[in-house]
Simulated scan of single mutants.
Amino acid sequence: MNPHIVRRIAGVLAAACWLGACSSTPHWDARFGQSVRASLAAQVIHPGAARANAPVNGLDGKAAAAAHERYQRSAEAPAALAPLAVGAAK
């Protein structure tokens, strides 16, 4: 085969690959960062909460203290775990 033809075919293939790579990113670039913006928007419940005088929805003081106490006691004595038998057939 003629080396001139081989070089020309290789050049055409290289140019096609180079130009093909440029055309695949515009639809990715248009949505770049969209998932981060959606996650941030999902975290914002009430942007004007700092200016509002209304109380925050949640637990009252006694219920919050009791829940915190139960949580602290659960860490002191965790529940007993069942023995682990991996691969044992009965």
Results as ranks from 00 to 15, higher is better:
residue 20 G to I: 08
residue 35 S to P: 01
residue 76 E to G: 01
residue 82 A to S: 08
residue 35 S to K: 12
residue 20 G to A: 06
residue 9 I to A: 06
residue 18 W to Q: 06
residue 4 H to S: 05
residue 37 R to K: 13
residue 43 Q to A: 06
residue 66 A to F: 07
residue 45 I to T: 12
residue 37 R to D: 08
residue 59 L to D: 06
residue 56 V to F: 09
residue 64 A to I: 05
residue 60 D to V: 03
residue 82 A to W: 01
residue 60 D to E: 11
residue 64 A to D: 07
residue 54 A to P: 00
residue 12 V to Q: 04
residue 21 A to P: 00
residue 76 E to Q: 13
residue 11 G to E: 10
residue 87 G to M: 08
residue 81 L to E: 15
residue 48 G to N: 15
residue 49 A to S: 13
residue 46 H to A: 12
residue 54 A to S: 08
residue 30 A to P: 00
residue 71 Y to S: 04
residue 10 A to I: 09
residue 20 G to Y: 13
residue 73 R to A: 02
residue 32 F to K: 14
residue 56 V to K: 05
residue 41 A to D: 12
residue 24 S to G: 09
residue 90 K to P: 14
residue 5 I to H: 07
residue 42 A to D: 14
residue 37 R to N: 07
residue 23 S to K: 05
residue 15 A to F: 15
residue 90 K to W: 03
residue 65 A to Y: 13
residue 76 E to S: 08
residue 58 G to D: 02
residue 5 I to L: 04
residue 35 S to W: 13
residue 67 A to Y: 10
residue 88 A to N: 03
residue 81 L to I: 04
residue 20 G to S: 07
residue 38 A to N: 12
residue 38 A to E: 14
residue 11 G to R: 06
residue 65 A to W: 12
residue 42 A to H: 09
residue 28 W to T: 10
residue 15 A to G: 12
residue 40 L to Q: 04
residue 43 Q to I: 06
residue 43 Q to E: 13
residue 6 V to I: 11
residue 90 K to Q: 09
residue 44 V to S: 01
residue 39 S to N: 12
residue 19 L to R: 09
residue 36 V to H: 04
residue 45 I to R: 03
residue 32 F to E: 13
residue 72 Q to C: 00
residue 57 N to A: 13
residue 7 R to L: 04
residue 36 V to P: 00
residue 66 A to V: 11
residue 28 W to V: 11
residue 77 A to E: 09
residue 38 A to F: 00
residue 24 S to D: 10
residue 31 R to M: 04
residue 48 G to I: 03
residue 6 V to C: 03
residue 83 P to G: 04
residue 88 A to W: 03
residue 85 A to E: 09
residue 25 T to H: 05
residue 61 G to W: 14
residue 74 S to Y: 10
residue 60 D to Y: 10
residue 70 R to V: 02
residue 53 N to Y: 01
residue 78 P to L: 05
residue 87 G to N: 14
residue 46 H to L: 02
residue 44 V to G: 00
residue 11 G to N: 12
residue 45 I to V: 10
residue 85 A to L: 06
residue 18 W to Y: 14
residue 51 R to F: 03
residue 4 H to C: 00
residue 20 G to W: 14
residue 5 I to F: 07
residue 43 Q to P: 00
residue 38 A to M: 03
residue 46 H to D: 15
residue 35 S to C: 02
residue 70 R to N: 10
residue 82 A to N: 07
residue 77 A to P: 00
residue 83 P to T: 07
residue 60 D to C: 01
residue 18 W to R: 07
residue 52 A to P: 02
residue 15 A to W: 14
residue 33 G to F: 01
residue 16 A to N: 01
residue 55 P to E: 11
residue 49 A to T: 14
residue 27 H to P: 10
residue 86 V to A: 05
residue 2 N to T: 15
residue 61 G to Q: 13
residue 89 A to C: 05
residue 65 A to H: 13
residue 8 R to P: 00
residue 20 G to Q: 10
residue 30 A to C: 02
residue 50 A to F: 13
residue 26 P to K: 10
residue 58 G to T: 03
residue 57 N to F: 04
residue 2 N to C: 03
residue 19 L to G: 15
residue 64 A to Y: 15
residue 48 G to R: 14
residue 42 A to I: 00
